[in-house]
């Protein structure tokens, strides 16, 4: 069963984030991805996250789709104009990629090519509209396609916002759903209470809200996230638990596994597992969540 059917059937889906390499050696990427085959439901391939130059999501997704399993390819507005975005979406579909996640993309100033000019020829709502048009058989210029792509389309939502910002986010979320978005990935979640206002307003059992379960790597990382990542809360209790753990790496994996279990129990449609470089630990997290 593919990802779309799993969502429709109400199955809890596990997406595993696999970053393409910075270079052409794909062996580690493929090895890590192969380790989650049969455990995760699909691989999410980011498009140069944090504006750090590496192999494109299209390249990574094509390789992984062919060698390992179903992929969800990220597509962003930062690096490509409307010609290139549409061209890559056609290429992705023709190469068997059926899942895409549309995002705005971080500014180049976040990354390792800070002198780069961002494109933003079209914005996220326009990108979603263009994806819809492609699926209807026409490009953005209204010209008929010779065969149209069909995608399961995802995007992002930030439930950690509060007050007026959260209300605006809900409006944006509705716009995305109206534009054909079928699942929404949210930023790292460590504490369900931190998104309580959102959960009061949105039935996460009906809308496919996919929290990111980010693998912590150290006490320092946990503290850093809590202090510096907007709208992401790591509780003092969790930080203390990590501090006390004799084997911190094992504890980090355990925390991630537990979070997957909690989110499944709470009725979320799935999770995105993100490890930021520790992709060889993905399988352990999934195994731990099932134990």
């Amino acid at each position: 069963m593919d990802l779309k059917n799993k969502f429709n059937a109400g199955e809890f889906v596990i997406l595993a984030e696999i970053e393409p390499p910075k270079g052409v050696d794909i062996s580690t990427m493929v090895t890590n991805a192969t380790m989650v085959k049969g455990k995760a439901d699909a691989l999410l391939v980011p498009e140069m996250s944090n504006a750090v130059m590496r192999m494109s999501a299209l390249g990574g997704a094509m390789i992984l789709q062919g060698k390992v399993m179903e992929t969800v390819m990220q597509v962003n507005c930062r690096d490509r104009n409307r010609l290139a975005l549409q061209a890559d979406l056609l290429a992705a579909s023709a190469c068997g990629i059926t899942g895409i996640m549309a995002v705005t993309g971080e500014d180049p100033s976040f990354g390792d090519h800070q002198q780069a000019k961002a494109v933003y020829d079209i914005d996220l709502p326009e990108l979603l509209d263009s994806i819809h048009k492609l699926q209807q058989g026409r490009d953005m210029a209204g010209i008929d396609l010779c065969g149209s792509p069909q995608f399961l389309v995802g995007s992002t939502v930030n439930p950690g916002l509060k007050g007026m910002a959260l209300e605006l986010e809900l409006t944006e979320m509705k716009k995305k759903i109206d534009a054909g978005v079928e699942f929404l990935i949210m930023p790292p979640l460590f504490d369900l209470d931190s998104i309580e206002p959102f959960l009061k307003m949105v039935d996460h059992r009906k809308t496919h809200i996919i929290p990111t379960v980010l693998l912590l790597k150290s006490v320092g990382m946990a503290r850093y996230i809590d202090r510096n990542m907007d709208h992401v809360h790591v509780s003092a209790q969790l930080i203390k638990r990590l501090q006390k753990a004799p084997d911190k790496v094992r504890e980090c994996i355990k925390i991630a596994s537990e979070m997957v279990s909690v989110l499944k129990r709470e009725g979320f449609s799935g999770v995105l597992l993100s490890t930021i470089g520790w992709e060889d630990r993905l399988a352990e997290i999934i195994d731990g969540s099932k134990g």
Partner: peptide, 8 residues
Amino acid sequence: WSTDRAGG
């Protein structure tokens, strides 16, 4: 191009 619009 960082003196252009990269970086806002």
